[in-house]
Structure formats: structure tokens, C-alpha cells
Design a protein around this nucleic acid. Structure first.
Lengths: 146, 146
DNA sequence: TCATGTTGTAACTGTATTGGTTACAATGTG
DNA sequence: CACATTGTAACCAATACAGTTACAACATGA
């Protein structure tokens, strides 16, 4: 089981928006889909989520999408949350309704919960400390040496 | 998307094995299923994975399952790996085949990879530092105060 | 020896999520 | 007012999961 690629696609899309456009052409869902290599509707769905989270402004009809904030102030955790790949605090699913007549069944959930929560938080903290700018800087750096 | 409950069920099962049996009755898949509240076949499938990982010994036909190691030496990371809820290094799925003709498309994967790997490792390290014994101790503690 | 109970697996089911696709109404702009 | 684009709904195929039935293999103990 894997975390949906919606997250990586969202970061891809935001990177496109963060990097200087070539020749001022508008970034439509069609063009973004071309870079991601998927269908424009998939991009629009994700843009809708990013818009709802306040990360981008999408111009309907006329086309064009823009970041509402500086890349340095956008963390990957915000993106991760925006595309709802994982509900808050629900990365691990725990079997429900263990047998309350059993010592283990009665307490396993709360006994595990603390550890699972910490594991999940550890993952999210790494995302929280990575900004969109770091990603685009990395992309630019790789472009130079290759 | 969530990480399969196979993991929490496996920890539940191992906790049953780690805690002193009542009256020396053998722990069959049927009895474990009763505590987890699921089907015995689900338990046997997971026991098969734990056995393959060398964490338990299962007596065929006659019944009965036993830990092969002390609970203090078994980490939740081993259990997590044993039940294969997530392939090694594959917690995040990244869209494949981004457009190589695009600057972002060409470098997004490797630019993201480092961060995602660190996020995943952070999660696994929490599991690596939690032992089965800690879980059963927690269960026993909760049983006392409730 | 043989009946019993258990494990190990295969096969099938229903459910949910995902990513892709078609279709089309709504809409802002030139 | 024509046009390109967005925003959505609807549908599809693929995949994963947990549950279930069924049954062969087999160790034990009567």
C-alpha cells in the first residue's frame, strides 16, 4: 500500500508554477498535464484541492494558475494535507472492534496509538521542514549539472 | 489511503503470544481470531508472514504458536516489514514517466526522492525503537488501572 | 492404526481507492 | 459573441484489502 501519487503530482505542479515561465505563456491544465504526463482532468482535480487550501489562484475560463505565496513559505506538509492523501492522524489503520473480553483486545488500540502517532508525526515533520523552494532549487541544481 | 491493518493485527497477535497464557491452553488461530475479532484465515495468513520472517514458530496440525525470541528483542519495524504492508522504500508513490522534455519533468523524481526517503525513514525509526515488550508492558499497565 | 483438530492455501466475494477518460455546462476575455 | 479553459459529474479498469468457504496435508494421541 502506498501513499497516492497525488502528492508528488501536486509538488510537480507547484514546481512548475514556482519556476519562471518561459516566454510568458500561461500555464493551463493542458500544459501541466503534458509535463506530468497525465490527463488534464487529473491536474484540475488536484488544482482544485490546492486552491481550496489557498496555495494557488486559478483563473477560470481565461486560464492560468498562480501561486498565492512565496515558494519559500510553502511546506510540503501543507501540500500533503491539501491533497488529502492521508486523513489527519490516520496513516495507520488499526483493526477495529477487538474483543473487549480479552486483556490484549481491550487495550491494544490505546497501547499502539501513541507509537503510531509518533511515527506518523516523525514523517510529517520531515515534510514540514521542506519547502517548495528547496525542491525547485534542487531541480535547478540538477538541471545545471546534467 | 492507509497502511493496512495487517500491521496492527500482527502486533496484536504477537502481544497475545508474549503475554503469559492463561491455564496453558494452546493459542490456535481460532482463539487469536477471537481476540482480534476476525476470521481465523486472516490470522493464519499473517502468522505465515511472521513465520517467514522468523518471528514465530507455528506447529502445524497439532496447533500452537510460539515466539522464537524475547519480546524485548523484537521491534515493531521488524513486524512492519514482516507483514509487507509497505514495500521497502516505497511508502510514497511517485508518478512515473514525467515529461523529460520539461525541466521540471526531467528532475522532479530525483529532487523529491531524497526528502521522501528521509520522511519514510523517520517513520521507520520510531518503529525501530519500539519493542514488542514495550507494547505488552503498556497493555499490562492499562489493565491495572482500568 | 486411525479419528480428530489444526495448519496452510487456493479461490472467490464485496468494497474501496486510484488514475484515467469522456462529456459538458459555466465563465472570463478579447 | 466566439473561444479557450475551468470545474465537475459520470464511468471504467486495475488494484488492494479483509472476509469467507473449502479442502488437502499432517501431527498427535486414543
Amino acid at each position: 500500500m502506498q501513499i497516492s501519487s497525488r502528492f508528488s503530482v501536486a509538488v510537480h505542479v507547484l514546481s512548475l508554477l514556482a519556476l519562471p515561465e518561459q516566454d510568458g505563456v500561461l500555464l493551463t491544465s493542458e500544459r501541466m498535464a503534458g509535463s506530468v504526463n497525465t490527463n488534464p482532468v487529473v491536474i484540475r482535480r488536484i488544482l482544485g484541492q490546492l486552491k481550496k487550501a489557498g496555495l494557488v489562484e486559478v483563473r477560470p475560463a481565461s486560464g492560468g494558475t498562480f501561486l498565492t505565496r512565496q515558494p519559500a513559505t510553502i511546506t510540503l506538509l501543507e501540500v500533503y494535507r491539501a491533497v488529502e492523501v492521508v486523513e489527519e492522524g490516520q496513516l495507520f489503520s488499526v483493526h477495529d472492534k477487538p474483543n473487549p473480553a480479552c486483556l490484549v483486545g481491550r487495550h491494544i488500540q490505546s497501547a499502539l496509538d501513541d507509537t503510531l502517532q509518533r511515527a506518523q508525526t516523525a514523517l510529517e515533520q520531515v515534510l514540514a521542514h521542506t519547502t517548495l523552494q528547496q525542491v525547485t532549487t534542487e531541480i535547478a541544481a540538477k538541471a545545471l549539472i546534467s
